[in-house]
Write a protein that binds this DNA or RNA. Structure first.
Lengths: 144, 144
DNA sequence: CCATTTGGTTATCAAATGATAAGTAATGGG
DNA sequence: CCCATTACTTATCATTTGATAACCAAATGG
């Protein structure tokens, strides 16, 4: 298989993962937050504490819009801002207790669906999967 | 590694792929179509000919909204509708010549970036990657 | 200590997207 | 032949998202 064919396979793969992700995460997001807000919360949950600039950079949302959405999230008591002693311009963002609980429940449910999906795979296959994830992570994703 | 830990790894993996995809596809979409329209064109390009219902189902866009966006795309001469002889309610959608050219160029550029990204991997590693994609495709994605 | 950069906010606007109701026309099953 | 269903359309509305300008305050670097 040449590299062009591998690209084709990669495209198919990406599409399939996208679909699986959609299956795993559908109906997870609470109704009272928007999709963008939910994805910001996901990012905070995984990377907290984070600054506004980090959110803006990583999620490709402009600073003004990040600021706006974050303000809404704090108003909903889902996350909190803390001042940074060393640099008083910066603010660190963390999930509030309610936000943490919400995201814990969400991840719990997604994880459950994932386990359900792989419940039939054997222990050896499980290792194959783990190796596969590592291979792609190291050889394709962290290119340079 | 237990299954819960594998889930963690899967989440990390998904995030990384998302970021890579963003890198590969940024600034590819022409300015005169919206993100949703572009993703519809991607889907048509890969699956043509398709019906409106298929687009609606696969992309998780309601029929009215699919109809609206497709109307805009045909008005921009990027795709065409054909009547189906057997069932006159249905319509098959294909890219127009201009649409095909546009998507060919887009895929060409994305493919180029992908090749650039894997240009340093050896022939053996290439096979590792291919095997990894197959493993995930069969053992995780097509779960039932 | 002044100019520039960084980190963030507020306000405002336009565009994109999502949701719903209501309708047409064709099909298909009793 | 009629009723329910399928496939799609049109219209309309609310919400979300993206983009821009203008601003403040703290830091940083000559």
């Amino acid at each position: 298989m040449d590299r062009a064919a591998l690209f084709q396979k990669f495209v198919t793969f990406t599409t399939a993962l996208h679909e699986v992700t959609h299956e795993l995460t559908k109906d997870i997001k609470p109704d009272d937050i928007t999709p963008v807000q939910y994805s910001i919360l996901e990012y905070i949950a995984v990377s907290q504490p984070v600054t506004l600039s980090q959110i803006s950079d990583c999620m490709h949302i402009s600073m003004p819009n990040t600021s706006r959405e974050l303000k809404k999230l704090t108003e909903k008591n889902l996350c909190e801002k803390f001042d940074v002693a060393e640099d008083r311009r910066k603010q660190l963002i963390r999930l509030s207790e309610a936000g943490q609980t919400m995201m814990d429940v969400a991840f719990q449910r997604i994880g459950g669906r994932f386990l359900e999906r792989i419940k039939h795979v054997s222990a050896e296959e499980l290792e194959d999967i783990e190796r596969a994830l590592d291979v792609l992570q190291t050889k394709v994703f962290q290119g340079e």
